[in-house]
């Protein structure tokens, strides 16, 4: 199982490599499935800038990134 790699550009952009797809998406929370569980990005005006089989880019005012199960 490949572990995800998370890149954070300030609090404006988060890039997650080796993800496994989207679990949930709202303006305040985006859940991304990965080899390390669900990565939960919380913030304001969140949107998926780009998504493909390699990485997912989330833009907006990012407050927190947490790992769930």
């Amino acid at each position: 199982m490949s572990m995800p790699s998370v890149r954070i550009y300030g609090n404006r952009l988060v890039q997650i490599l080796a993800h496994r797809g989207l679990c949930g998406c709202t303006e305040s929370e985006i859940d991304i499935n990965s080899g390390a569980g669900v990565i939960c990005i919380k913030g304001k005006d969140l949107a998926i800038a780009e998504i493909n089989d390699e990485y997912i880019s989330v833009k907006g005012d990012v407050n927190s990134i947490t790992y769930g199960n």
Binding site: G21, A47, I48, A49, E50, I51, N52, D53
Partner: peptide, 10 residues
């Protein structure tokens, strides 16, 4: 994503 279709501005 599984079918390697690129998406953006979601």
């Amino acid at each position: 994503l599984k079918r390697r279709i690129a998406l953006w501005n979601i």
